[in-house]
Simulated assay, not measured.
Amino acid sequence: MAEARPTSLYAPSALVFTVAQGDDAAATVVRASTLSCAPTATGTHPDAQAACAALNATGGAFDRLLAAPNPDRACPMVYAPVTVTADGVWKGSRVAWKHTFSNSCAMSATLNGNAVFAF
């Protein structure tokens, strides 16, 4: 009888990140990137290592990717929603996360210095 064995010592972590114009399911994706963090950082993300480090720092709470907006950056009061998403598996658990910003300036001010959505 065959014994079931894991194919890897690491829990799977493979995600697709998107940036879309709009605030609903019909939003138009303008950028997307893939990322896998175990056993090494790979994918189409331009800085996979930094993105994996940022995700590890969240402890699985993706809302921790959001920071207080940079107070030195003034954004226009224009509503042109931008939605970011993370879909896939993180350390063996299913992830379906999204956050909508009022416009791309607010997104940049809030995600400033965050490697995950820097693609």
Rank of each mutant, 00 (worst) to 15 (best):
V82G: 01
A27L: 03
T110D: 04
P6E: 15
A80F: 12
R5Y: 04
V82L: 02
A11Y: 13
D72C: 02
A32R: 12
V29R: 05
L35E: 11
F117Q: 00
L65F: 06
D63K: 13
G22L: 08
P69K: 09
G59N: 07
N112S: 15
P39T: 13
F17W: 02
A41T: 09
S13R: 09
T28A: 04
F17D: 00
A2M: 09
T58Q: 03
T85P: 03
T83G: 03
N70V: 07
V30S: 03
V19K: 06
P69V: 04
C37W: 05
R73W: 01
A115K: 09
R5L: 15
A20E: 03
A67R: 15
T83H: 02
T28W: 01
P71H: 14
T44K: 10
F101H: 00
L55M: 08
S108D: 02
F17R: 00
V78L: 14
V30D: 01
Y79N: 09
L35I: 12
N56M: 08
G60S: 05
A50D: 15
Q49K: 10
N114V: 03
C37S: 13
F101V: 00
M1N: 02
D72P: 00
A20R: 07
V84F: 01
L35K: 11
V29Q: 01
K98G: 05
Y10K: 05
R94Y: 12
A106C: 00
A38K: 13
G113H: 01
N114A: 00
V82F: 03
T100Y: 01
P81F: 07
A67Q: 14
T18C: 07
A53R: 15
A96V: 10
Q49S: 13
A106G: 00
A109I: 03
N114M: 06
V16E: 14
G43Y: 14
T110A: 06
V89R: 03
Q49T: 10
A25D: 08
C105R: 12
A61W: 04
D72S: 14
A38W: 13
V84R: 00
D47M: 04
A109G: 02
A41G: 07
T58F: 03
D47Y: 08
L65G: 07
W90V: 09
R5W: 10
S36A: 15
W97L: 02
T100N: 01
Y10N: 13
G60D: 05
A51M: 06
G43L: 12
N114W: 01
T7S: 12
Y79D: 05
A27Q: 06
L9N: 11
S104A: 15
T44G: 10
A50M: 10
A51S: 02
A4L: 13
G92C: 13
A14W: 12
C75T: 07
L35Q: 06
K98T: 10
A68E: 10
F117G: 01
P6N: 11
A53Y: 04
A118G: 11
A51D: 03
R94V: 15
A20F: 11
V95S: 05
A54S: 05
E3D: 03
V30G: 02
A20I: 06
P71M: 06
V82A: 02
A80H: 13
V95G: 06
V95M: 07
G59L: 08
D87P: 00
K91N: 15
T40I: 09
R64Y: 07
F17L: 09
S108H: 05
M1Q: 09
L9E: 14
F117H: 01
F101S: 00
A27V: 10
A96P: 05
G92V: 13
P39S: 13
T34E: 14
